[in-house]
Design a protein around this nucleic acid. Structure first.
Length: 588
RNA sequence: GGGGUCGUAGUUCAGCCCGGUUAGAACGCCGGCCUGUCACGUCGGAAGUCGUGGGUUCAAAUCCCAUCGGCCCCGCCA
């Protein structure tokens, strides 16, 4: 048992505490031993405070402090004293005072830490993760995880105030092989059968609506067995929301209020709903992507009409097939060098097997490899569409719009990064709406759901399901912030017939539909109310709140790119007896 | 599955192109001295399977091949 209880947090003591007798616990951050006087910066979750051990004041405490080393966990008693003039440290919140220690006890020694907790150089992430218990002591990790807590608290408060009920759904659920790979869990009592960890509680929350809960939310853990990225972990958290009877704008309004509350309470920043809406078609046409970063321009321009009948063979051939030319005007204020243009051209060639053309509006007219093939009429047409001025550079790609707009969207983001336009701390929220319901998968030779197969078609497009389903729009919406998708949702199908129709369009037989989603189809037979909702990526929101580039910095115990936890060593082999009980044989 | 990049004291790195004495530096660590430091100072010291395996060579941290691992990206992620 500790010899005494803590009265205060180290980092929370202030000049107003002067004269108080305090008892503190904390880690030794640094020890400055002057032979006579010893100073120790003692750290806890609130920060550091300076301890002073004076042999004339208390010899035993001084001698005990002399034995303390980095990351020892110690308990002290002492008196809060104002620092004398000239020894105040303006850099520290506790810099006006120090603790004159008269009792000093080491509660637990520490091996020399593998890296310095504070003031050390940036440590390899592998080492940080292996010794996560030390890494988590770093002020940055403390701050990130507490912001995460504050964000989730704000979310819960907001949803609670709006009548949403937090309901837990199972982690052991049924495999539904549409979408990502499932994590499987063998069932011992049902040999040869498996649960799947949920990729999201999507179906369960729909069932909850049918079950009469009307407004549900959950901070739900989700699992997807796919390759990792800086912003993708195999397990992650969603703010999962569902309600009955909403129009898209009802969900959007609740979500906007929730996000505004998060920014207000975590960062003290006012964001002003409602957020602007942009159709999917516009987003793709103007930015080449369905989650545009609106902090900067560099929009895509459709130059097709300007080059009708061009003599430039490359364009002429592509246009003769009814395809398009799109371009980006890079303003002369931020000129690209010839070398940068060549690198851009080369990278577009290698990444997309596509040609990139460019011209520069110079003093002597258009310059660049293709300038001589472009007629004056085409130049003025293109200049007018793309608003070209002296010194501007026009970057162009020709081909099928669906192929070239994402390429230019990528080029746009790279230009934004090059000019550091993506460094702005502006918050450009928007809703992307009117997503298509289906997309055609060349790989699977069939239509696939753009969102998920439970998304309701726009009622205006219902008749398109029979004729041209790829043109049907969904009642789906994504919230986007600065080029990152924070969350997405939709109104769901609540009619069994329509749901079966959509499954059929996705190439699923009646038997497959019933086998995979029979419980949903059954539930839809019993007075299922119209319903819809949204889900937000907690980890990505926290990345934005903390200004970090990696999800791993907002998760206490994340996994590496190989989905390994370097601290525990998971995943690991298991005892053969465990496998026998599960009727599982490992073949590799 | 593919591309890129990194792997050298506890940590962060230099050395590698162009093979050749005892593999260096900083921080940290250990010991001495030091009563106003807060990146304390100062004197001294310890500390390395150069990721692993193989090859070339009189000789490999350095060149070649393979392999493992970290990170970033493509594929994948309804």
């Amino acid at each position: 048992m500790p010899p005494w209880q803590r009265t205060d947090y180290c980092g929370a003591i202030r000049a107003s505490d002067e004269g108080r007798e305090v008892a503190l616990w904390g880690w030794v951050q640094t020890r400055r031993d002057h032979g006579g006087l010893i100073f120790i910066d003692l750290r806890d979750r609130e920060g550091i405070v300076q301890l002073v051990m004076n042999p004339e004041h208390n010899a035993a405490a001084h001698s005990a402090a002399g034995e303390a080393r980095s990351e020892f966990y110690v308990a002290v008693k002492g008196k809060v004293a104002r620092r004398s003039e000239g020894t105040v440290n303006a850099e520290l919140p506790t810099g006006e005072i120090e603790i004159l220690v008269h009792e000093f006890e080491v509660l637990n020694a520490s091996a020399p830490p593998p890296f310095q907790v504070v003031d050390g150089e940036a440590t390899a992430e592998e080492i940080r993760l292996k010794y996560r218990f030390i890494d988590l002591r770093r002020p940055e990790m403390q701050s990130n995880l507490r912001r995460r807590h504050q964000a989730l608290k704000a979310v819960r408060d907001h949803l609670d105030q709006n009548g949403f009920v937090d309901i837990e759904t199972p982690i052991l659920f049924k495999s539904t092989p549409e979408g990502a790979r499932d994590y499987l869990v063998p069932s011992r009592v049902n040999p040869g059968k498996f649960y799947a960890l949920p990729q999201s509680p999507q179906l369960l929350k729909q069932i909850l609506m049918i079950g009469g809960f009307d407004r549900y939310y959950q901070i739900a853990r989700c699992f997807r067995d796919e390759d990792l990225r800086a912003n993708r972990q195999p397990e992650f958290s969603q703010i999962d929301i569902e309600m009955t009877g909403p129009r898209p704008e009802d969900i959007q309004s609740i979500a906007e209020g929730m996000i505004a509350s998060v920014y207000q309470r975590v960062l003290g920043i006012d964001v002003k709903p409602p957020f602007p809406r942009m159709s999917y078609a516009d987003a793709v046409d103007r930015f080449g992507i369905d989650k545009p970063d609106l902090r900067f321009g560099l929009e895509l321009k459709n130059l097709t009409s300007g080059f009708a009948g061009t003599a430039f063979k490359v364009f002429a051939e592509i246009l003769s097939r009814g395809e398009s030319v799109y371009g980006i005007n890079v303003p002369g204020a931020d000129p690209l060098t010839r070398r940068e243009l060549d690198e851009l051209t080369e990278s577009v060639r290698t990444r997309y097997s596509m040609g990139l053309a460019w011209i520069k509006v110079g003093d002597a007219g258009w310059q660049g490899p293709i300038a001589k093939y472009i007629s004056d009429a085409e130049k003025s047409a293109a200049a007018s569409i793309a608003d070209l001025k002296q010194g501007d550079t026009l970057i162009m790609v020709a081909g099928l719009p669906d192929k070239i707009r994402p390429v230019l969207g990528d080029v746009r983001l790279r230009l934004g990064a090059k000019f550091e336009l993506d460094k702005s701390d502006e918050l450009k929220f928007l809703w992307v709406v009117d997503f298509p319901l289906f997309d055609y998968s060349d790989e699977d030779k069939r239509m696939v759901a753009v969102n998920h197969p439970f998304t309701a078609p726009n009622p205006d497009d219902l008749k398109l399901l029979e004729s041209t389903p790829l043109k049907a729009r969904a009642l789906a919406y994504d919230m986007v912030l600065n080029g990152q998708e924070l969350g997405g949702g939709s109104i769901r199908i609540h009619s069994r017939e329509l749901q079966l129709k959509v499954f059929e369009l996705l190439g699923m037989s009646r038997e497959e539909s019933v086998d995979r989603f029979g419980f949903l189809l059954e539930a839809l037979r019993y007075g299922a109310p119209p319903h819809g909702g949204i889900a937000f990526g907690v980890d990505r929101i926290c990345m934005m709140l903390c200004g970090t580039e990696s999800l791993r910095d907002v998760i206490a115990f994340p996994k590496t790119q190989k989905a390994v936890d370097p601290m525990s060593g998971a995943p690991s082999e298991v005892d053969p007896r465990q496998l026998r009980e599960l009727s599982i044989k490992v073949t590799s």
